[in-house]
Design a protein around this nucleic acid. Structure first.
Lengths: 202, 202
DNA sequence: GCCATTATATGATGACCGTCATACTATAAA
DNA sequence: TTTATAGTATGACGGTCATCATATAATGGC
């Protein structure tokens, strides 16, 4: 072995890490192979030493977006008490910051409408990431003593996703803020934690 | 004038009408000019007699998607009493049928994550369509005697959008159905019309 | 039936992109 | 220091696409 054992793997990771951000920003169709490699300081030629095809690459990138988002949540909510963590989860998800930063935000908001048009492998990777995300939310809800977390979790996620997606679509800043505030209030009420964290209404 | 006065206009309409469906199905990036013209029985050459650019065309197509969806709602809810109409609105929006048919469904679900990546004119057309959609929903809510319709309407829409978007993302049919059912139940509860229309829980 | 004009078709151009064959380069072992 | 080999770069090919210049066809008025 002439290169260090970890060389290729490190490059692979670096490419994926950067691609995961670019994917959420530009979407799967506008994300060019050459551009991704360039961002990692490489040229397009080496791409196929790392990935079988663009489809294959996109599927890996999708998984990475979920992994990144998951780690981000863990970091933010680390050490909080269950109910506080849940409230903080909602406050961070349905926030102006999340709205402004698609490339580091939740892939469900960033990619949901691309989904039906992408390859099977893309959808599969998305589906698995989503499943883990919902399971995680459900666990946090259960730990916080919420009843019926199994049915409630995906519904809560749907409301959060819809609110952030809409807030990104609306051009009027005040309206956009209002949508987020209303969603935070409603979701925290549904969860019985509207007494914790940001106040939705003054 | 050699052609009938309406010829070009009719063609323009026909192209847009077909494009509006194709746009929701394939998305703005995968929608090819030549393909759209072919669907209308024409060749790609005449395209620029009708539209200044693809961007310009897409903006018109976006408006058309909202117009089509709006007309569809009017047709479905025509003649219903306010509260029944509102319940039917929710039941149709958050339905398996809507999930299965993006090309004739709500453009907000079909296009929301494309939005940040598209041109200014695209986003403007979307924003205007969305504004009308929300205003319409708000009016229906107000007429049905819902209090605080102004703040509630976009929040309700967000929950509906998120639920359908998630239901399209989830591969497991049963889970997907469950998400829709839970959303219908929650939304109709929020609106105080959970006694009308489909039963959310058996 | 012919003409002026408008709508559409043909075909070309240039850009971008995914993919791959081939050439180069860096490095660990000898 | 040399060499074998794994990792990366160069450059090309074929395809798709938006855009546009130019040619052709359709049609209402003369």
């Amino acid at each position: 072995m002439r290169y260090a054992d970890s060389h290729k793997e490190e490059t692979h990771r670096k490419v994926l890490k950067l691609a995961a951000r670019a994917l959420r920003e530009k979407g799967p169709d506008r994300l060019a192979v050459a551009e991704v490699m360039k961002a990692a300081g490489l040229t397009h030629g080496g791409f196929y030493a790392h990935f079988k095809s663009k489809d294959d690459f996109l599927a890996e990138a999708v998984s990475e977006t979920f992994a990144q988002a998951g780690r981000r949540w863990e970091r933010i909510l680390e050490g909080m008490a269950p109910r506080e963590a849940l409230a903080a989860y909602v406050d961070y998800y349905v926030s102006e910051t999340h709205r402004e930063n698609p490339s580091t935000g939740c892939p469900v908001v960033a990619l949901n409408s691309d989904l039906p048009r992408q390859s099977k492998s893309f959808r599969k990777a998305f589906d698995e990431g989503l499943k883990r995300l919902v399971a995680n939310l459900e666990r946090r809800m259960a730990v916080a003593g919420i009843e019926g977390a199994g049915v409630l979790a995906p519904s809560i996620l749907a409301e959060m996703v819809g609110a952030v997606a809409l807030s990104r679509a609306v051009s009027d800043r005040a309206h956009s803020d209002e949508i987020l505030a209303a969603a935070r209030y409603d979701i925290k009420t549904r969860l019985g934690i509207d007494d914790i964290g940001e106040q939705a209404h003054e």
